[in-house]
Design a protein around this nucleic acid. Structure first.
Length: 133
DNA sequence: ATTCTCACA
DNA sequence: TGTGAGAA
C-alpha cells in the first residue's frame, strides 16, 4: 500500500508552482505515475524534487542536476560503468570544491567592502558632529 | 481542481 | 529556466 502525493501537495510543501513541477517532468527529472491524467508522486519522487531544489540553490543547471540524480539512483553493476561513475563523481567533486573556493573568496571580499564602508560611514559621522560641510 | 499546448522572455 | 493564457 503506497502513499502518494498530489502535485498541489508538493508545490505547497516546496513553495513552487505546478508549472515548475510539470516543467521538471518535461525535462525528465521526475517521472510521476498517473492515475488517469492525475500525477501521483511517490515519496521517492518527493526526495528527488528535494534534490533538484538543492541543486538549483547550488547553481547547477537542470541538466547537471539530472546527471547527479542519475548518479545517486542507479549505480550500474558493470565494472566499466562503475569507472565512469567514479569519474563523474571526481569531476563533480572538483566543481563543487571550486565553487566552494569561489564562495570563500567572495566572502572575504565582502568583508573588505564592509570594512571600507564602515570606515567611510564613521568619517561622515565625525564630520556631522564637527559641523564640517 | 488539474491537465495540455503554444507562445514568450 | 521557467511563466501566462486558453481550452478541455
Amino acid at each position: 500500500m503506497q502513499r502518494y502525493f498530489t502535485i498541489t501537495q508538493l508545490t505547497q510543501e516546496f513553495d513552487i508552482t505546478t508549472r515548475t513541477l510539470r516543467f521538471y517532468e518535461a525535462q525528465g527529472l521526475v517521472t510521476p505515475q498517473r492515475r488517469g491524467r492525475q500525477r501521483l508522486y511517490t515519496p521517492g519522487d518527493r526526495t528527488r524534487i528535494k534534490l533538484i531544489l538543492r541543486g538549483k540553490r547550488l547553481g547547477f543547471s537542470l541538466a547537471e542536476i539530472k546527471e547527479m540524480i542519475a548518479m545517486y539512483g542507479s549505480a550500474p553493476g558493470e565494472a566499466g560503468q562503475l569507472r565512469l561513475l567514479m569519474q563523474k563523481i571526481d569531476a563533480r567533486r572538483a566543481e563543487l570544491l571550486e565553487k566552494q573556493r569561489d564562495i570563500e573568496l567572495t566572502l572575504l571580499e565582502l568583508d573588505d567592502v564592509e570594512a571600507g564602508a564602515k570606515k567611510r560611514m564613521s568619517e561622515l559621522q565625525v564630520r556631522e558632529d564637527t559641523g564640517t560641510p
